[in-house]
């Protein structure tokens, strides 16, 4: 547990996390390892865990009928994978595939949601960490949609 608490605190997503919250989060955490090509999750599955990437690279993919899977984003060391665990219906919207050997910390979603409900300080802290990530990804997606290289 102390080990998980330490590596949680070392991950950029949890920079500055206070000790009490670290202990609470470590109770929901476990080490995960994904071989290259292995899926962290598939579209439509229950979003019951989210991931802090410690090492490696993960591709978010979607299937387009009649075509090969399309990679819409890649995520690497220091980033997080998954936001669908935060909101009903708690189902993944995309596939997540390890491009290379990927080591991560998995946080049990139900456990985490429960602790955030009980401790609103923890919940607010989590929201303050998640929102910038979500907003940045929204901005990135908007820029991708602009297809800026089409007329450069």
């Amino acid at each position: 547990m102390a080990y998980l608490e330490r590596i949680l605190g070392e991950h950029p997503f949890f920079a500055g996390l206070d000790d009490e919250h670290g202990r609470l989060l470590a109770g929901c955490a476990r080490n995960r390892r994904f071989a290259a090509g292995e899926y962290l999750f598939r579209e439509g599955e229950a979003a019951d865990e989210f991931y802090l990437i410690r090492h490696g690279q993960v591709a978010l993919e979607t299937l387009v009928p009649g075509r090969a899977p399309l990679v819409i984003a890649t995520l690497g060391e220091g980033e997080i994978v998954g936001a669908s665990w935060l909101l009903p219906p708690y189902r993944w919207m995309f596939d997540a595939r390890a491009v290379t050997l990927t080591r991560a910390i998995g946080l049990d979603a139900a456990c985490l949601r429960g602790k955030c409900e009980v401790d609103h300080h923890l919940g607010y802290d989590m929201m303050k960490r998640f929102l910038p990530v979500v907003v940045k990804r929204l901005h990135d997606t908007r820029l991708q949609v602009l297809d800026v290289y089409g007329d450069d």
């Binding site: 690279q57 591709a59 399309l70 990679v71 890649t74 491009v99 290379t100 990135d140």
Partner: peptide, 11 residues
């Protein structure tokens, strides 16, 4: 954008 055979970054 990339296909699944691209091992580099997408973003």
């Amino acid at each position: 954008h990339a296909g699944a055979d691209w091992a580099g970054r997408v973003g």
